[in-house]
């Protein structure tokens, strides 16, 4: 798996995917739907799948002493690595907002979602959806990327819309807690995000391996 990941990083990935990691900075923008950071981070990953197809990466992988399942797992390893880096960057910036910038007026007077642990949980849900819908959809053919991205894009936008609207609903304002306020709720939301991410990713990998195994290349 180490070699597959090395191959992804060295040959298959699009350089722009790394640039898109900078989308984590959206976490700091006041008055902006910060969950879009997840959308842009996964858009960066989408470009790598596009690049991989243009570079005939699957054809090359077939020459190697690896199984089709290894090819799928290699791609997931790359996706998880970049999602991991993106998440850590977002988490660092979220902690900055939750502590040092807790009382900053630009964030206090923000009508949109703030950066807290609920945000991080929702970010993980976005990554889980990407892994379960887009990546899994790609491995149904090993070629097409448009339809899987559309299928992922719709729930992504719905999720962002829902997350932005939720804290305006009476009784759900605590989802937008500042700093460490309502920390139990924040921790529960983060735990739910972790759980859903793990579940969706696990299902995505399993289904992708099955689908790709059936594809005649």
């Amino acid at each position: 798996m180490k070699n597959m990941l090395y191959k992804e990083l060295k040959l298959a990935a699009a350089g722009i995917s790394y640039f898109f990691l900078a989308s984590a900075l959206f976490t700091m923008i006041p008055g902006y739907p910060i969950l879009m950071s997840g959308g842009f981070l996964t858009l960066g990953l989408f470009y790598s799948f596009q690049s991989m197809r243009e570079k005939h990466d699957i054809e090359y992988s077939l020459l190697l002493p690896v199984s089709k399942a290894d090819i799928v797992k290699g791609k997931y390893a790359f996706v998880l690595l970049l999602e991991g880096i993106g998440f850590v960057l977002c988490a660092i910036l979220t902690v900055v907002r939750m502590t040092f910038l807790k009382a900053s007026p630009v964030y206090l007077e923000n009508a949109l979602m703030g950066a807290n642990l609920v945000y991080l949980g929702e970010l993980l849900l976005i990554f889980g959806l990407f892994n379960a819908i887009f990546v899994r959809g790609f491995f149904k053919t090993g070629y097409y990327i448009g339809k899987p991205f559309l299928c992922y894009g719709i729930p992504l936008l719905l999720l962002i819309g829902l997350a932005e609207a939720a804290h305006h609903i009476p009784g759900l304002g605590l989802l937008n807690a500042f700093g460490t306020d309502e920390i139990e709720i924040q921790l529960i939301a983060l735990a739910c995000g972790v759980l859903l991410f793990v579940l969706l990713t696990f299902v995505g990998i399993r289904q992708s391996v099955k689908s790709f195994e059936k594809v005649d290349l």
Partner: peptide
């Protein structure tokens, strides 16, 4: 495959496998 990568890079990855 990898039309814009140097042969050295492709071989360097291949040998690992």
């Amino acid at each position: 495959y990898y039309p814009k990568h140097k042969l050295r890079e492709i071989a360097g990855v291949t040998k690992r496998f």
